[in-house]
Amino acid sequence: MNFEEYNELTHKRGKIWIWSAASLILFVPVALSVKYNAWPGFVPVLKGLLGVAPIFWTVGIIEIITFTPMLGTAGTYLSFVTGNVTALKVPAALNAMESAGFNAETEEGEIISTIAIAVSSIVTTIIISMGVLLFIYIQPLLSSPALKPAFDNILPALFGGLGIVYISKNWKIAVAPVVFMIALFVMVPGLASSVGILVPVGILIALGFARIMYKKGWLE
């Protein structure tokens, strides 16, 4: 079986799993509505959705378009079921491929990305499940004021380490989007809650400047 055939098989497997997951996820509110005879009605759900769906649905589709080329086939199917894509699955896959020395579009990259995302999903699920089981014992510890600043700063801690690797290797491509994003967030701090929408903006800026530099022969 060559890479193309393996990839096609992965698509078939992925589709079965992802549609099964979609059915199971929908089953949860259906089951509890039936069990407790508690159908909420169309209007309350619509009102609740109006507050979040425009942004969630947009970000959801943007994430698929943005992250699919980075995650590979199996990694994409798995990540968009297990969630926490930007803050966990994408960095896990990128870090694993970088450490192993493979690109996302190679077969080895596809395999390493899949392993990283699957392991990350399993470890996350186990840690959350243990936390739920030991809720009474760990809540005081995890909620302690001493640890709060550490967990509040998990994204800077993640993207500092990840960013330096990619920026130092591709600094010419990095300069324009990084400077633009820093300036934008300093000027409009409220955008921090919509960072998902700004990822494609960063990509377009990076692509635009990279294209100009490529045409001028400044990029190898």
């Binding site: 943005t66 080329p69 980075m70 930007t86 491509i173 989007p177 994003m181 300093v186 990822v199 990509i203």
Partner: peptide, 27 residues
């Protein structure tokens, strides 16, 4: 060659957005 740069630009878009967000509270 452009394909490789294209992929790198995708990574940079994500990293720049999340790195930039870190500066949102400097004021």
């Amino acid at each position: 060659a452009w394909g490789n740069i294209f992929m790198t630009s995708l990574f940079m878009g994500m990293i720049s957005a999340f790195s930039g967000m870190v500066f949102s509270r400097v004021k």
